[in-house]
Design a protein around this nucleic acid. Structure first.
Lengths: 181, 181
DNA sequence: AGGTACATGTAAGCTGTTACATGATTTT
DNA sequence: AAAATCATGTAACAGCTTACATGTACCT
């Protein structure tokens, strides 16, 4: 599923501009499972317009570029519902944090602990952010509680896993740690 | 962090061919947090060789292409340890499964349940695979137990989250479900 | 005075995916 | 007899990221 299809999906929830679509990826539940920048959203909307899957209405504004509001067409809606019926591609998870920890033995003594401390703080911040998002009762028809609940569960798990299992990496293989014993 | 750097890292664990590196991404703990295909591994190894970060020894074999075994050089090792000290990029998680569920209201009545059933089976299979991996006590120096433990915790969480929260999506907004009530 | 939000877009580049090409050996 | 494993590589393509280009208005 590419950015073009995702934009189409977001437009099933109501009209929006490219800027507003970008905000959804940044702030709303969909951002937990997909990302998209202006550099991919604007070309995607232009292509969808050419294909007749959306239509665009320019709204004049003072001192700013015209706001281009997109609406999905009947064909667009049909196409998107068909896209939803396809077998979903497998999840992709990529984490440099874990790659670094896999090579923890090559790091200086205190680096692993610092990294894990920072990561725990990060997950706690994510928990706070998602709790705020859950409180917002976001306007769109997206199934936000289900998705946000999963994100919360994930970040809470990460905090407890890191706290309970950091000993597997700290004082494990680094020469400095061994000397310190 | 790109495939080239990852190959360098894997070679800190011992000599290997491109084919063997690919197997690690497919079967070992590192595959939980990064993926790489032949199409990126082979060019990466050629580039590392040009840069003097690895050296290559061809081993003649009967009936097969020469096996090209790569060894990391001192410069390669130094470069990789410096790479490990960089601030890790944020994780990236992409899931078409969750995108589809965000638009559950557009799906026919039984589709959501089928999707979740399949997903639970998938996570159970991943649990089984990781339990087997944990039992293997893999040869490399990678911190496998920490990584595999995290993967296990993640997939087990997913099974229980989906089981306990599927009611948020099923019988929620689809017309068919509402008619059925 | 500086940063953030609003608002759209292009272009170059990086990275990775997929399909193709080739073929023997081992396992089921 | 078919499928998986071993073994390397290229080329075309797809897709996304980043930087650049441009500017107003509001908030601190």
């Amino acid at each position: 599923m590419d950015v073009r299809t995702l934009c189409l999906g977001i437009l099933t929830l109501g009209d929006a501009s490219g800027y507003e679509i970008r905000k959804m990826f940044a702030d709303d539940a969909i951002g937990e499972v997909f990302d998209a920048n202006f550099g991919s959203i604007y070309p995607a909307l232009n292509r969808l317009t050419e294909e007749g899957l959306v239509v665009c209405t320019a709204q004049a504004q003072e001192g700013r570029p015209d706001k281009k509001v997109y609406s999905i067409t009947a064909e667009g809606r049909t196409l998107f519902t068909h896209e939803l019926m396809r077998v979903p591609a497998r999840d992709r998870f990529r984490s440099e944090f874990f790659v670094i920890l896999l090579f923890a033995d090559l790091l200086p003594g205190d680096r692993v602990g610092d990294l894990i401390d920072g990561r725990i703080v990060h997950h706690q911040q994510e928990v706070a952010r998602l709790e705020a998002l859950a409180r917002q009762e976001s306007a769109g028809a997206l199934n936000t509680p289900f998705m946000v609940g999963f994100g919360l569960a994930h970040h809470r798990l990460a905090v407890s896993y890191l706290t309970e299992n950091r000993h597997l990496l700290e004082n494990a293989g680094s020469p400095v740690a061994q000397i310190a014993e």
